[in-house]
Design a protein around this nucleic acid. Structure first.
Length: 288
DNA sequence: CGGACAACCTGGTTGC
DNA sequence: TGCAACCAGGTTGTCC
């Protein structure tokens, strides 16, 4: 119970996964296309992963924003020159669009001044978030980006694809679903929720799943993510959309950080343990 | 190659 | 009361 109680008050409980990144990207895509970028004010140097701080600031100035999208947990901003800006929020990162004169958070790491006296602001208490500015035609410098798995809400994510990838895995089902090479965009919250909806125990061996269990898992991943996108994500404490609003999916969570709470399906108290090095939550009666 | 795990960080909570 | 230890987790890097 200690973790549950303490989490309710802590500020690190924003965990941007696919639904949260999708919400931020789609809102930015409604607000940013056509806007001019004036430069970059870097308050925490580690935020800029590529290229150097100096080149980042000089190259982004004068660009015009064309479109904003998402790949896995990355926000992708297409710029007028053909350059791309990729942003990973990691644990506590958040993007807001605010008047340049609005009060700044103590955790502001990067401000990108735009026309019309507004700023795109990146706030990140724990400093894990990263920005990559890629020249036209340049590839992401991270090898892991090229090996990202299929988008779970697009056509390429089929039961067959999931079955093939699970068949090649050892270790636990939880670890397999957290691996961005297997399927892109899931994190700790939605893996636990999807496993609950599929009725599968997180410690199951991926190779042991029967065809109907794989089909149930495939459907559960899609349903949980779609509903969470519809709710604009999960806010435990600090996660906000670009308008500063909270998500609502925390009200639909079945097991994540619900240890001791009755299972919504059978009433058995939800269990908690560490699987794949992560806090993991499941119903000991419903999940086999 | 895959899997396990430390490191990166902060701040609220715990325990001495 | 004070303060060090602990903990959460997405991803990378290291090791076996």
């Amino acid at each position: 119970m200690r973790t549950l109680r303490s989490c309710a008050k802590q500020g690190w409980c924003e965990l941007p996964e696919l639904p949260e990144v999708e919400t931020v990207a789609s809102e930015l895509n409604e607000r940013l296309p056509g806007r001019a970028i004036l430069g970059a004010e870097i308050l925490w140097p580690g935020t800029i992963a590529h290229p150097s701080q100096e080149r980042f600031a000089s190259q982004i100035g004068g660009e015009r924003i064309e479109q904003v999208g998402r790949r896995a947990k990355y926000i992708v901003v297409w710029l007028g020159s053909g350059a791309r800006l990729l942003i990973h929020l990691r644990m506590t990162g958040g993007l807001t669009l605010e008047p340049a004169t609005a009060p700044r958070s103590a955790h502001l790491r990067l401000a990108i001044p735009l026309d019309c006296h507004e700023e795109l602001r990146f706030t990140d208490m724990r400093k894990f978030g990263r920005f990559y500015l890629l020249a036209p035609g340049e590839e992401m410098p991270l090898p892991s980006f090229a090996t990202l798995g299929p988008e779970p809400l697009e056509d390429g994510f089929t039961v067959t694809v999931l079955a093939e990838r699970l068949a090649a895995r050892r270790g636990t089902l939880k670890a397999a679903l957290l691996d961005q090479r297997l399927v892109a965009g899931l994190g700790n919250i939605y893996v636990d929720e999807a496993l609950f909806h599929a009725g599968l125990h997180p410690c199951r061996a991926p190779q042991s799943l029967r065809p109907e269990e794989i089909a149930a898992l495939h459907g559960a991943i899609i349903i949980v993510l779609r509903r969470a996108v519809g709710a604009k994500g999960t806010t435990f404490s600090d996660y906000r959309t670009t308008w500063g609003r909270t998500g609502a999916y925390q009200e639909e969570l079945s097991v994540f950080r619900k240890q001791g709470v009755p299972c919504p399906r059978c009433g058995t108290p939800i269990d908690r343990g560490v699987v794949a090095g992560r806090g993991t939550h499941w119903c000991p009666a419903c999940q086999r």
